[in-house]
Simulated scan of single mutants.
Amino acid sequence: IGHTQAAAGVGGVIKMVEAMRHGVLPKTLHVGEPSPHVDWSAGEVSLLTEQREWPALDRPRRAAVSSFGISGTNAHVILEQAPHLVEGPADTEPEATAPLPLLLSARSEQALRAQAAALASRLDGEPTVRPIDLAYTLAGTRTVFDRRSAVVGRDRAELVAGLEALARGEQAGAVVVGDGRQVSGRLAFLFTGQGAQRVGMGRELYASFPVFAAAFDEVAEAYRLLTEESLREALDGESVHGTGVAQPGLFAVEVALFRLWESWGVRPDAVTGHSVGEIAAAHVAGVLGLEDAVRLVVARGRLMAALPEGGAMLAVQAGEDTVAPLLAGREGDVSLAAVNGPSSVVVSGVASAVADIASALKEQGVRVRPLTVSHAFHSPLMEPMLTEFA
């Protein structure tokens, strides 16, 4: 192929994949005669001085590709011909293993229903149209308009039924399944806790969306009245990682994000949160007014930041049942700070105790990762702030 430098290896792969695809052994280029330093009589290896047919045998074709880098780095790979896929009759469908989504959008609800009717007719009347191809085209090549819907089904019949239900206007703007039932459409927002902050967070959103900016400014003004400081300026520097700034900063961004989604018509049925995210959830749900919520967040961050630094937090790739026995008898030093999922928990507490638990988990083959924090949040080390916080 020539001196293609870094692309030599992948160039060789492409060449041999195409050779196997077409059943052709391509001639070796730029070779007038075999090297005299190789005993060609020993064995059955020979140069391809002319292009030859690559016959089909009772085994897949195989080829080796080597790329010899000028730095001395050599890479080698063996390729094997892919199994030949036999196309069945056009009116048969492979057995589905997972639901397939058809994503629709239009400028109006009437146009959306018309599109669903047209797709249902085509999918039902033209066996050569494969559902997976239709799903790919709708998802990747169509213009996205304001009115949207999705139909989900495991096979052609379910998808046609769902499209027909959408065309009748029964489920416009919803997700439907093959028999016309609406998928449980309950939407939840989860607000994150400390650790998600970053320098300049929300800056581009603030500049791009007036709704976001207005909501952020409301929180920032309440923050200024309590602290006499600029929240926006604090978020644009490394001080964002300090507990006293990170918590109100996250609260402001999360509330502003909620108001932005809300302005687009995306309204959750339920909200929940982790750590300081609980306060954001309480505010947007109407449990706490803005001034009260900001006052609570500022006090929480100030009191936590005032505690002696130290302690540690550890992310553990295991379930609660694995970690709980290691916490027994250490209730005053360390605790289970968060259960993020069936195989993801966080341990928090005195640094030495957390280190002991980390060592014990590693011996069991469990992956752990220390978190970069100033304090051991959600642990017994937070108790000295509780009275004043209450």
Rank of each mutant, 00 (worst) to 15 (best):
A6Y: 07
A7E: 02
G9S: 06
M20A: 13
V38K: 01
D39G: 12
D39R: 08
V45Q: 11
V45T: 13
S46Y: 11
T49F: 07
Q51S: 15
E53H: 12
P55V: 07
D58N: 14
A63N: 10
V65S: 03
S67T: 08
F68V: 00
I70L: 13
I78R: 14
E80R: 13
L85M: 11
E87C: 01
A90D: 05
A90L: 02
P99K: 06
R113D: 01
A114G: 14
A117Y: 04
L119S: 14
R130D: 07
P131L: 04
T137D: 15
L138Y: 09
F145N: 13
D146V: 12
D146H: 15
R154P: 00
R154C: 04
D155F: 02
A167L: 01
V175Y: 09
V175K: 12
V176F: 04
G180S: 09
S184E: 12
G185K: 04
T192R: 10
G195L: 02
G195Q: 02
G202S: 10
P210Q: 01
V211Y: 10
L225K: 15
E233N: 14
L235R: 09
L235F: 13
D236K: 07
E238P: 04
E238Y: 09
T243E: 02
G244H: 06
L250H: 03
A252D: 05
A252H: 00
V255T: 12
W261A: 06
S275D: 11
A280Q: 05
A281G: 08
A281F: 01
A285L: 02
L288C: 08
V298Q: 01
G301A: 07
M304E: 06
E309Q: 15
G311H: 13
G311M: 08
L314Y: 06
V316L: 10
A318W: 07
G319E: 04
E320M: 08
L326D: 11
R330M: 03
N340M: 12
G341Y: 04
G349K: 00
G349E: 02
S359E: 09
E363A: 15
E363R: 14
G365C: 12
P370A: 14
L371T: 07
V373C: 08
A376S: 14
F389P: 02
